[in-house]
Design a protein around this nucleic acid. Sequence first.
DNA 1: CGCTTCTAGTTCTATTTTAAGACCAGTTTA
DNA 2: TAAACTGGTCTTAAAATAGAACTAGAAGCG
Lengths: 158, 158
Amino acid sequence: MAKRVSHWNAGCPVARALDVIGDWWSLLIIRDAFDGVRRFGELQTSLGIAKGMLATRLRDLTDRGILQTAPASDGSAYMEYVLTSKGRGLFLVIVALRQWGEQHLYQADEPRSSMIDRHTRAPVPRLQLHAKDGRRLTWRDTEVLKVAKDPGPAARRR
Amino acid sequence: MAKRVSHWNAGCPVARALDVIGDWWSLLIIRDAFDGVRRFGELQTSLGIAKGMLATRLRDLTDRGILQTAPASDGSAYMEYVLTSKGRGLFLVIVALRQWGEQHLYQADEPRSSMIDRHTRAPVPRLQLHAKDGRRLTWRDTEVLKVAKDPGPAARRR
DNA sequence: CGCTTCTAGTTCTATTTTAAGACCAGTTTA
DNA sequence: TAAACTGGTCTTAAAATAGAACTAGAAGCG
């Protein structure tokens, strides 16, 4: 290709977020990190990702402050990768993706992993967006206020 | 590259979701669709995406039931792309990405678009995950129950 | 201790994606 | 009726990916 275009300067937090974790593998690595997978080899077999890809993704995610390395908790001389606070902030992104996938991409009888409440062992209910006064908000109830105006990527390239 | 590997058969809704909307552009197209952008040309200039890319992305998203085409609402002979119900289901994914981006990727003084409540014009509060009994759930309170066991992509390729 | 195996990578190459621009047919506007 | 706009397709080059081969250091084993 030509170099993949960056969304960083779009003035939109969605675009900037995707610039950081919007590639094919990052969110899956982060999902595994939430599930307690910490070692390079564990990630590799769990994801079925090429080692080279995994190595560069882990480097990128570390550089961007989403993962950090720590000495292995089993006492060996190896490293492990754990989520930073910024990385843990992606929890609701993963939950939202999971819930959408469950609802729209599976037949009733297809087996799939599910997220449960550790205390009650019950399935986690659906995420909801509420206004300050408690009203439930759907996409119809919201609107995006655009910023002053960056000319946008196309214009910026001219 | 070699052909990008698919995550569809991983038995994880997150993986399957990313298989469908996990590429570099899809979620940005969907974000624009939520903001009311409907025409090919509007999308192209708004995103700064190459026309060829946009055309294939729109075809994919339509094939996958996330967008659908409709006769243009301005009476011209052209088409427009609108979200299906399945596509609108991605609302909370966009909101979660937006909120993470706002919180972790911007300096206080950087301008950025923001999402507001149409009725009160107030910023939309943060998404929260709650248990059935109303307790707020964080990543520490949840656990993913894996499914019976697909051997995983690496093993499947052997 | 010495040998083998495991871990966590790096390097290499073939193939596919992507970006970006040229080109084009049908539609709308002047 | 000519000019410009819309919504694409086609072509090309540069870059990302997958997959395999290779490697240095750490662990396990007898």
